[in-house]
Simulated assay, not measured.
Amino acid sequence: MVQTKPISKTITSLLNLRERFNLTPTSNHQFSPEFTQDLPELTDSETAALDQIRNRFLRHRERGSLAEGTINHLVISPLLTLVETFRWNVSLLSRWNVSLLSRWNVSRWNASLNL
């Protein structure tokens, strides 16, 4: 009988995935050409910045899964800065979690505010 297990319980890190399936990263730029065709050339500083973001992410990711907030700090925020998103007419939406405690710590209420 075949046993089914959730992938998140079976493969817990990138290192585990590499070992289990004998995978190795590739630096072959022709591996997936649809992502590199018809794009403008990157400057040396853009390439260096992307390499730094990639290496930082891979170094942290190899040891296990990362929370969404960590991904935001390691990857998303630097990428947004690199593409100068904040120069555009873009508004960011944040979700704030608020916990309210009673004066005597008897009750607790949780709420989310979308700002």
Rank of each mutant, 00 (worst) to 15 (best):
P25D: 11
P25E: 10
T26S: 15
N28E: 08
H29M: 06
H29E: 14
Q30C: 05
F31L: 13
S32T: 12
S32K: 11
P33F: 08
E34R: 10
E34A: 07
F35K: 13
F35S: 03
T36P: 00
T36L: 04
Q37H: 14
D38H: 11
D38Q: 10
L39T: 14
P40G: 04
P40N: 02
L42R: 14
L42W: 13
L42M: 14
T43C: 01
D44R: 07
E46L: 01
T47N: 12
A48C: 05
A48N: 07
A49E: 11
L50I: 14
L50H: 07
L50K: 12
L50Q: 03
Q52C: 13
Q52T: 15
R56K: 10
R56F: 01
L58W: 05
H60M: 08
H60R: 14
R61L: 15
R63I: 07
R63S: 14
G64C: 07
G64R: 13
G64L: 04
L66F: 05
E68V: 10
G69D: 15
G69R: 15
G69F: 04
T70H: 09
I71D: 01
I71M: 09
H73P: 00
L74Q: 02
L74S: 02
V75N: 02
I76K: 11
I76C: 06
S77K: 12
L79H: 04
L80P: 00
T81Y: 11
T81V: 12
T81F: 04
L82N: 02
L82Q: 11
V83I: 13
E84T: 06
E84P: 02
E84V: 01
T85P: 01
F86W: 13
R87Y: 05
R87H: 07
R87T: 10
R87E: 04
W88A: 10
W88M: 06
N89A: 11
N89C: 06
V90K: 06
V90I: 15
S91W: 05
L92S: 02
L93F: 11
L93D: 08
W96C: 04
N97W: 11
V98F: 01
V98K: 02
S99W: 02
L100V: 09
L101S: 05
L101T: 00
L101K: 05
S102Y: 00
W104K: 13
V106G: 01
R108V: 03
R108C: 09
N110H: 04
N110V: 01
A111G: 10
S112H: 13
S112G: 04
S112L: 09
N114W: 03
N114E: 06
L115C: 04
L115V: 08
L115I: 07
L115P: 01
